[in-house]
Design a protein around this nucleic acid. Sequence first.
DNA 1: TAGGTGAGTGAATCAATATTCATTGTTGGC
DNA 2: GCCAACAATGAATATTGATTCACTCACCTA
Lengths: 203, 203
Amino acid sequence: MTVPATGPGSEKYQRILDAAVEVIAENGYFNSPVSAIAARAGVADGTIYLYFKSKDDVLRTAIDTTFDRFHRQVGEQFETLQGPREQLEYIAQVHLESHAVNRSMAILMQTEVRQSAKFIAEFSHHHLVKYISVVREVIRRGQKEGIFRQDVSDGVVAHCMFGAIDELLSSAVFTGRVYDAKATAAQVIDVLLNGIKAGSAKS
Amino acid sequence: MTVPATGPGSEKYQRILDAAVEVIAENGYFNSPVSAIAARAGVADGTIYLYFKSKDDVLRTAIDTTFDRFHRQVGEQFETLQGPREQLEYIAQVHLESHAVNRSMAILMQTEVRQSAKFIAEFSHHHLVKYISVVREVIRRGQKEGIFRQDVSDGVVAHCMFGAIDELLSSAVFTGRVYDAKATAAQVIDVLLNGIKAGSAKS
DNA sequence: TAGGTGAGTGAATCAATATTCATTGTTGGC
DNA sequence: GCCAACAATGAATATTGATTCACTCACCTA
């Protein structure tokens, strides 16, 4: 047992994180007293402070973990994928799947990550930047290879793609609608690549 | 003077609203004590309650007013515009212009509107639904007229458009980047209509 | 089994802060 | 000048809630 009892590996640590995500998804960070999180996790208020530095720290950790998992998952498959199109589709799919993986976490990402509480905005920003960078690189490569048009900014396109997917996710999360992540990802990327104008070449 | 002194028309009413938007944009709703808003507006704490029912009410009013202005502005020009493409471009442009109109308000819309505080999520939802509905209708009309492909869902496309633009706005607002709203709107709609695949017919 | 260790507890503390309301100041009519 | 009527004030109130810390107790070791 190299893991300290109160360390990140322990079962109680995870229980507290899960409870925090649930409670905050339901009520928002500022309407979630530590006592409510503790109750949900089945521990005493003070116990939270054995595992985390502060209430902030709990949320920060939850968000960091989720982003890291996302980047890791994308990173693993990424190189094996054929072309830019397949890579963009895969990113979109993983992004859209987050709903099914953990709905509470998806809600939390939609509601709290953009929230202006300084401490969140600042530390989560670099995760988003990383996402956008990956997409931009794929697009630039596609442009260099002549697969994509070169008269549109890779930055604008990357933000469009992120925004489009995130908005679909957001609306599904809040309305409770469900969808097939893979099919929806394919549809979004299809629109991004081919547009919606009638008569555009298919695929 | 049919307007009551403490009514919506008065100068102090507007000063309080503006101050609230500024302070909340800087610190977030839950980190903005009423006293800070009052100080920024140059009034006493209690004065706010002569003009508004509660702290909630101030924010609600600010957001409502902004959405109403948006819908009105879009509504005015809308019928005079030629085709679906022009209409979509105009909506995108007005959306993107909100940054220049009032940066604090743009920040607030990005940070607080999605926030899970129940009272915000609930009342602002219908404004977004209205936005999406308008776009969906334009798209359906375009599909019926044979201008747009019929094999993609109008809902998905509408959310993609909203998300793409909102994300561009968001990223610009937070990084301080500036852009030409009209040109950017045209670029986004161009991608939406024609895609980014090389060789697609132009415009 | 006595002693030690440290995880776990939850009541007490202490700082915020939304809202109220008794009081003050101002204005316009007489 | 005097007097409503009413906007404005801001100190007082009452509540909430993050964090602390003195204490308990289960478990281990000698």
